[in-house]
Amino acid sequence: MQNQKSFNGLFVGLVTLDLIYLAESPPKNNQKLVAEDYIVAAGGPVTNAAVTFSYLGNKAVVSSVVGCHPMTQLIKSDLANYQVEIIDYYPTTENPPPVSSIIVTKGTGERAVISINAVKTQVDSQAISPDLRDIDIVLIDGHQMKLGCAIAKQAKAENIPVVIDGGSWKPGFDKVLPFVDYAICSANFYPPDCQNSPEVFAYLNQMGIPHIAITHGEKPIQYLSKNEIKILKVPKIQLADTLGAGDIFHGAFCNYVLQETFTTALEKAAQIAALSCQSFGTRRWMGNQ
């Protein structure tokens, strides 16, 4: 599935260390469980997207905070294995990286996640000096908002397409949206005063974003095309694990939208995301193509 032409993507946001367990169910209070399987991998929305983008034949760079805590070696080695480069804005920080503990329920593919995200590892605006030479597309997840805003503004000035991963609304997104070309949102993304999909489409459209899509898991994707909200069906699959499916969708979308129409890019990204849901974890699907 790799491209004939390789592109360069910059992925701005959260890098975590993911501890992923496969179990019959999440534990109840005071209960101990023995997992059936586990995976340790680099995680975070743009991280999984970058790995997907790289896997599809491109050069991916993650822009975030990683640091030099001993646990970061697990992150760095995993990303190196998938040829993903890291631009680390605080490479000397000894603070531990954000860690996500995830339990995937065997049989349903549902996941339970606890994480601290990037609240303790924010990039200060004084540290930002984006270099976008040779970059073909930028993806921003909102977890490093000051960094994302600076890069989005610079990308807009240089006519580089900007994609947002709208997993959930985060304070400061309103500063990024004027520079966005593609808003790919989850059903949980609600800007201020928005309570349903039509209101989300209207809000983002008023921000001047020409291409908007809202994913709904296994349900059809809604997307705005020529001022009309349309529906795109997603593949029906035997579900094993939903973890990271949205992130993988975004990474695949960044790959395909550089080659295809908006609608076709959504369709092909949905196929990759569906493939990822048929394997445990965020990486094993790559061996199933």
Rank of each mutant, 00 (worst) to 15 (best):
Q2Y: 10
Q2H: 10
N3D: 09
Q4C: 07
K5T: 13
S6T: 11
G9N: 08
L10W: 02
G13R: 05
L17W: 01
L17F: 05
I20W: 05
Y21H: 08
Y21I: 00
Y21G: 04
A23F: 12
E24G: 13
P26R: 15
P27L: 15
P27F: 12
N30S: 15
N30C: 13
A42F: 01
G44D: 02
G44Q: 04
G44H: 01
V46A: 04
V51M: 08
V51R: 06
T52L: 06
F53K: 06
S54R: 03
S54D: 08
Y55F: 09
G57W: 06
K59T: 15
K59G: 03
V61F: 03
S63H: 03
V65W: 01
V65E: 08
V65G: 04
C68R: 15
C68G: 04
P70Y: 00
P70T: 00
M71T: 07
M71D: 10
T72Q: 02
I75H: 03
D78V: 12
A80P: 13
Y82N: 07
V84G: 14
E85D: 11
I87P: 13
D88M: 08
Y90D: 11
E94M: 10
I103R: 01
V104F: 07
T108Q: 06
E110A: 11
A112D: 08
V113R: 05
I114S: 15
I116Y: 09
V119D: 13
V119E: 14
K120Q: 11
D124L: 04
Q126L: 10
Q126F: 14
S129A: 15
L132M: 05
D134C: 05
D134K: 10
I135N: 09
D141M: 02
G142F: 00
M145L: 09
M145E: 12
L147F: 04
K153F: 09
A155S: 06
A155M: 04
K156A: 15
N159M: 06
P161N: 00
V162G: 06
V163Q: 07
I164G: 07
D165R: 02
G167S: 10
P171W: 12
G172S: 08
D174A: 13
K175E: 15
V176H: 04
L177M: 13
F179W: 13
Y182A: 03
I184A: 02
S186W: 03
Y190C: 08
P191I: 09
D193N: 14
C194Q: 08
N196W: 07
E199T: 14
E199R: 02
F201T: 06
L204T: 04
Q206M: 12
G208A: 04
H211F: 11
I212L: 06
A213C: 13
I214L: 09
T215H: 09
G217H: 07
I221G: 05
I231M: 11
K233W: 02
P235K: 11
D241G: 10
I248D: 02
A252I: 04
C254W: 02
Y256P: 03
Y256R: 08
V257Q: 11
Q259V: 03
E260C: 08
T263W: 03
A265Y: 01
E267I: 01
Q271C: 10
I272S: 12
L275R: 14
C277D: 07
S279A: 10
F280K: 01
G281F: 03
T282G: 00
R284T: 09
